[in-house]
Amino acid sequence: MRRFYLIGFLVLVSFDTFAQVCFKLTANHAMPPEATLDWVWRLLSTPWVYCAIACYVGAFLTWMTLLEHAPIGPAFAASHLEVISVMALSVVLFGEKIGTPQLIGSALIIAGIVCLAISETDAEKPPATT
């Protein structure tokens, strides 16, 4: 069962990560962004936008399956920790530079997500007698 969760979380993070990468590829394809139908057509004319939608649907279904059995805390963390994998892929695929503010900011955000995940897990347990 532990293995089921582990694989489930990995699948969830992968879907979320690839959705964001596909979003970025879609945005790059449709440059420049403008409030016109032309831009919307450029968005819809790249296969990446459909990959992004497919990843979203995949993530949704994985999330719903996991939530049936998995505790909400780790599930919550896994669904937001894609921040790390997306940053890593941004460097590799798009040659983005991660500066010091981004490093500090991401460390704070990740610490916050871990706190939230633990607090969600605690909330799941029956209230302790005080």
């Binding site: 964001q20 921040v83 798009f94």
Partner: peptide, 24 residues
């Protein structure tokens, strides 16, 4: 969905996901 695509057209993806964390 559309707004996020416009947003990502203007910022690097690594920065975009960090800023998007405010949704939580």
């Amino acid at each position: 969905f559309v707004v996020w695509l416009a947003f990502l057209s203007l910022v690097p993806l690594s920065e975009g996901v960090l800023l998007g964390s405010i949704n939580i």
